[in-house]
């Protein structure tokens, strides 16, 4: 056994042990709001990951220059800057996704996961570790969004890769009657609640 590698640990804990959605219950608004379709969930996860990585790196780099009394406003300005950039990029290159995500794109700025990592990790650790932490937590967030979106799309629409009819794959053929509930708001809550129960079982079984 070699000495424990802090980078590997930073990377993996965000994905499983401290998964922002399944374990920490942070950043739930986009998790519930955009997971009607797999593509939207994935897009939202990646956009938030990009902001998280960028803000983690910048905040870790600036940690010695930010006065501790006004650190939260400073963090928020950094995060808001990157959210503005991501919003413009999405609007320019992914207009369909941008429309589908709607107001949840600017709302990345108030995602507790990002501010939480800035406060708890990036503001205390070196740049490289903050980067790895951003990647790990971002992947964990994207994973959770992807799983929930997949469940909701398969159950609620009977497709994968919708809503665009050209890319949508009908899983159960034409005669399938989807469970509309899972496409609707109540279904989001119920599906996430059941998924949390399932992850609880898995975590308990493997003693994580």
């Amino acid at each position: 056994m070699s000495a424990p590698n802090p980078y590997l640990d930073d990377l993996s804990k965000g994905i499983i042990k401290e998964n922002p959605v399944f374990r920490m219950l942070l950043g739930m608004c986009p998790v519930l709001g955009v997971t009607g379709y797999f593509i939207n969930g994935l897009g939202m996860g990646l956009a938030a990951t990009a902001v998280l990585i960028a803000s983690n790196v910048v905040i870790a780099a600036l940690k010695n220059f930010i006065p501790p009394q006004v650190r939260i406003p400073c963090f928020i300005v950094v995060i808001a800057t990157f959210v503005t950039i991501i919003e413009m990029v999405l609007q320019a290159f992914q207009p369909v996704l941008y429309e589908a995500l709607g107001v949840f794109v600017p709302l990345i700025v108030v995602n507790c996961v990002i501010l939480g990592r800035a406060e708890a990790f990036a503001s205390k650790k070196p740049v490289l570790r903050a980067l790895v932490d951003g990647v790990g937590v971002g992947l964990g967030f994207t994973l959770a969004l992807g799983i929930l979106a997949l469940v909701r799309e398969v159950a609620g629409q009977g497709t994968i890769m919708g809503p665009d009819p050209e890319s949508a794959i009908l899983l159960f053929g034409q005669g399938f009657q989807p469970m509309g509930l899972f496409g609707q708001p109540p279904g989001a809550f119920i599906a996430l609640g059941l998924l949390l129960g399932l992850t609880n079982v898995i975590f308990k079984k493997f003693n994580i």
Partner: peptide, 17 residues
């Protein structure tokens, strides 16, 4: 297994319904 947040979310779902 549903203790805590899981049952809260399911309750919220029923309320939303």
């Amino acid at each position: 297994v549903l203790q805590g947040s899981a049952v809260t979310l399911i309750t919220a779902g029923i309320l939303s319904l």
